[in-house]
Design a binder for these strands. Structure first.
Lengths: 193, 193
DNA sequence: GTCTATAGGTGGATAGAC
DNA sequence: GTCTATCCACCTATAGAC
C-alpha cells in the first residue's frame, strides 16, 4: 500500500486524524471531530475510510512513509553521527513541545482495540527507527565519536525505549525539559572516552 | 485520601477497573464491563464512584499506596542494590507477561480526557518510582556495585523512561523478551568496572 | 464524491423505589 | 446499598438521493 495515490481530501482527513491521535489518542476523537475540522460530513469520511480501523492503518502507513523520508534527510544532512542524533533528539522534543506523543506509541497504547493494526504497521515503525539508530551508531563508532565497545543493536533498542518512555512521562508532567534532559544525557553516554 | 476505608465492593470494582485499564486502556472499558465482572449493576457502581474520573483518581491512589508498600518490601528483602534492581526488573517484566502495561503509563496516554488526574496522581507515581531508584542506585554506589561516576538522579529518570518505553514497545510487539533484554542491558551498564 | 437522514448501538449518568 | 427504569448524548456505520 502506498498513500501517494490518495487525493487532497483524504490527506486532509488523515492530517486531522493524525493530530488528534497524537494529542488525545485514537479512541478520543470521532468522525464528527474530523467533520468539523475538514468541513466534510461524517458520511463522506466513510467514503474514503469505510471503518475507523482502515483510517488507523492508512494513517500509520503514511506516517511511516514520511518518517522514512525524514530520517533519510537527516542522514543526508548530518554526516557526523553525534550531530545526526542531536537533530533526531530535537525532532522528538519538538513533538512533545506541541503537546503531542509519538503517533505509533499512542496507537500502541490503544492496541487492544486495533487488532488489524497490531501485526504490521507498529512493528514497521519501531524497526524503522531502530535500524536508523543502529546505522547512526555504527557510523559514530567508525568515526571514533561513539564508544566502540557498545553494541549498536542493543544501544539502539534501549535508546528507542528511552525515547518513547521519556515522551510519555514528559507529556504527563507537561515538562518538555524532562525529555530534553534524558535524551541529552543518553547521547552523552554514547561518547567515546 | 486513603483507600483503606473502602469496603469490599469498592475494592472489587477497583480491581476490575485496574485490570481493564492495564490491558485495554481507561477509555476502552465501561461501567457495564465492571457490572459483568463484579456482579453489581452500573447504577450501583455510580454509588461508589459518581463519575468515571472519580474512579480513575481512586484507582491511581490505591495503586500508588500499594506500590509504595511493594517497593518498601523489595528494599527490605534485598540488601544488595543490584539484586534489588533485578527484582524490580522482574516485577515489571511480569506485568508485560500478563499483557498489561504500567497503570500510570496507560493513564498518562489518556491524560487528555482525565484533566482532574493530570496534576497529582501521575506525578506522584513517577516521583515515587524515581526516588526509590535513586535510593537503590546510591546504595549500590556506596556498596561499590554501581559505577560511582554516575549521577543517581539522572540515571534514575532515564531508567524510568526506558522502563515505560520498553513496556510499551514490548506490549506492541507482543514480545516480553524485548523488555527483558533492555532492562538487563541497562542494569549491566550501571555496574562498576 | 458529497450530501441528508437515520439506523443501531453504547456510553456515562440520574431518579426514585426498595 | 442495590435495584429497575430511563435519559440523553454520542458513536460508528449505512442507505439512498443528488
Amino acid at each position: 500500500m502506498n498513500t501517494s495515490e490518495l487525493n487532497d481530501t483524504a490527506h486532509k482527513i488523515l492530517d486531522v486524524a493524525e493530530y488528534y491521535t497524537q494529542t488525545r489518542g485514537f479512541n478520543a476523537f470521532s468522525y464528527k471531530d474530523i467533520q468539523n475540522e475538514v468541513g466534510i460530513k461524517t458520511s463522506s469520511i466513510h467514503y474514503y475510510f469505510p471503518t475507523k480501523q482502515d483510517l488507523a492503518i492508512t494513517m500509520a502507513t503514511r506516517f511511516n512513509e514520511r518518517l522514512k523520508v525524514n530520517l533519510g534527510e537527516l542522514s543526508q544532512k548530518y554526516k557526523s553521527a553525534m550531530k545526526r542524533l542531536e537533530a533526531f533528539n530535537i525532532m522528538q522534543i519538538d513533538i512533545v513541545a506541541q503537546n503531542k506523543f509519538c503517533l505509533c506509541g499512542m496507537l500502541a497504547s490503544d492496541i487492544h482495540g486495533l487488532p488489524k493494526l497490531s501485526n504490521g504497521k507498529l512493528d514497521q515503525f519501531f524497526d524503522l527507527v531502530e535500524s536508523w539508530l543502529v546505522e547512526a551508531i555504527k557510523l559514530g563508532q567508525d568515526q571514533g565519536e561513539i564508544n566502540a565497545s557498545l553494541n549498536p543493536v542493543n544501544v539502539a533498542s534501549t535508546y528507542l525505549a528511552t525515547l518513547e518512555g521519556g515522551m510519555l512521562i514528559a507529556r504527563a508532567k507537561k515538562n518538555t525539559k524532562y525529555l530534553e534532559k534524558i535524551l541529552n544525557e543518553t547521547l552523552l553516554g554514547f561518547a567515546s572516552h
